[in-house]
Design a binder for these strands. Structure first.
Lengths: 333, 333
DNA sequence: ATGAAAGCGCTAACAC
DNA sequence: GTGTTAGCGCTTTCAT
């Protein structure tokens, strides 16, 4: 059996509370005894049992992360940031895949709470008041990574999606494009709530371009969806450019365009959103809005840790900088 | 505060041991009392505290997963399989990113043990006796997903890498290629241990093709590495085909070939290994060896659960079927 | 079949 | 500054 606080106390000739005090630095301990205890800890290789600790403190060094799709590229990079910064603060990641289903998400919130996690990072395509209520009730520090989190009274991290989409659309217009299709995921939010759609729409309006509903399509977050929706568009007309609200979807759309015998960007320009690793790997490399994905993960866990430690957090909603990255998938018309 | 076993016992007018018995089905309880307890549990919404449980049983419903790189495509798909099957058996995933560094890996093994995880799934590019010893000492159920795990006395899941590489090489030869470059990651294993290299070498020898060390290159698992190594090759000579030992590396190589003004597959054929999502998304889509990645994750966690439950496991090393998928990146010469 | 009680390893009053 | 002790919520002997 592994060594316990009792063993250490006995060997050091002190009480277990003293040992507890030195490992937690919770109360003053005379220097001599501290040394003695320390050396016994070293000798024996004692490691406090986190489970026993959690039982009494009702806290653990675990942070629950609920994501809608582990195999999604965006999520993978996000997890990277969360894990890496979490490690710095000695928090581990309890990973939950909700498949974007609200019942699963709600179930996990309870599960995580019972596991005594110290906080929850909630990544969701489309968030609702239900989520907020469930987590509020849990009374745990929580941060949301979600495009529409700013509509709720929660802590969140994101970018300014509306302005980013506006700029991207404007960029396309400046490149001479007029018929700009918009392919989005309805899983992520309703189109009326969609910041990215608002940005797109505003940019068109500000440039006196009529919105054409025939080239605005909704699907899900997969490349297959991008392919399918692009096909629907091409069956009706050939737009100048396509703005897809995620890189994965954009690449599905490009594949469709290519398969139909058109060239990208020569015949149709395509832009994405996110700047996942794939965007620069794919050929033609994808012009896109670079979200600081890793940083979004990093910042969100940093916020959680602050909340756990009772530190003040300035703003509920943190907006990180984005960037328009020009690559090969857009051509001046 | 949330409801405890004590509350349930009181409300049901029984002792806490009885409640424990009904929730764990550990000992016979009269039908009448069982009903009574059950209904109180339902009313109160009681959920056993897993932390308290772990403290006494020294087990948790947590399975530690140590991976070398969360943002790697292959790992993402693997995690998917692990999570999904884990959920069926009510195990959650404690995710650890080791960056492939052995000290990190060793540290995590101890951490996980102290967290009372029920088992560990160890994904590693290159495994060593050190890992095995560390985990053996931990005395926990464990399964390895690693290309060279079969060299060790551990439970593992993989595919028959040597035969797969042999077949892929043979396929390339049958397509008329003679100068077949080989790009691999030395991070994954030493070349002398590499099953994939053995398969490649054997196939060349069996077909009386001289091995050309100038077109055999070693780097890491990234696309950047593939790009760089391909560039080194092209600076010396132009091979007929390239066999990269991972899709990500293969795509880096293709990008280099494209940037140098050659065409794939017209000038140079390229094949990969893994069949990550990217392989079919990329254009030209990649001919590759399809590893059943999701299943590898699924099978490994299934093994762990069996071990936890004390069930017998037939074979230490499970080999899953692979498949050669022909796509667009190879052309008959 | 059921209950009483010990104890898992730890923290945190509370006493001295 | 240090020790004693009561729990945290649960499982598991040991009686009955």
């Amino acid at each position: 059996m592994s060594v316990t606080i009792k063993d250490v106390a006995k060997r050091a000739g002190v009480s277990i509370s003293t040992v507890s005090r030195v490992i937690n630095n919770s109360k003053p301990v005379s220097n001599e005894i501290r040394q003695r205890v320390m050396s016994v800890i070293k000798e024996t290789g004692y490691v406090p049992n986190p489970v026993a600790r959690s039982l009494v403190t009702k806290k653990s060094q675990l942070i629950g992360v609920i994501v809608p799709d582990i195999s999604n590229f965006f999520i993978g990079e996000l997890l990277n940031g969360i894990e890496e910064v979490g490690k710095i603060y000695e928090y581990d990641i309890l990973l939950c895949n909700s498949y974007g289903e609200i019942e699963e998400e709600l179930k996990y919130i309870n599960l995580l709470k019972s596991k005594q996690v110290a906080g929850i990072i909630f990544v969701t395509w489309k968030m609702s008041q239900e989520h907020v209520d469930a987590i509020k009730e849990g009374n745990l520090p929580s941060v949301y990574i979600s495009k529409n989190a700013h509509n709720f009274d929660v802590y969140s991290v994101s970018i300014d999606n509306k302005t980013a989409a506006y700029e991207m659309t404007k960029y396309l217009i400046e490149k001479g494009h007029r018929q700009i299709g918009f392919i989005r995921s309805s899983i992520e939010d309703d189109i009326i709530d969609s910041e990215r759609f608002k940005g797109y729409k505003d940019a068109l309006e500000d440039n006196n371009i009529q919105i054409d509903n025939e080239i605005i399509k909704e699907g899900d977050t997969t490349s297959e969806s991008g392919y399918y929706l692009m096909n629907e568009i091409l069956n009706i007309k050939k737009p100048d450019a396509i703005f897809a609200t995620s890189d994965e979807v954009a690449i599905g759309a490009i594949n469709c365009i290519l398969d139909k015998g058109y060239k990208v960007p020569d015949d149709i320009s395509v832009v994405g959103f996110d700047d996942i690793k794939l965007a620069s790997l794919y050929r033609p490399s994808l012009t896109t809005v670079k979200q600081p994905i890793y940083d979004m993960g990093a910042v969100s866990i940093r916020m959680i840790v602050k909340m756990i430690d009772g530190e003040e957090i300035e703003d509920k909603h943190t907006y990180l900088p984005y960037e328009l990255v020009e690559r090969q998938s857009v051509k001046k018309r």
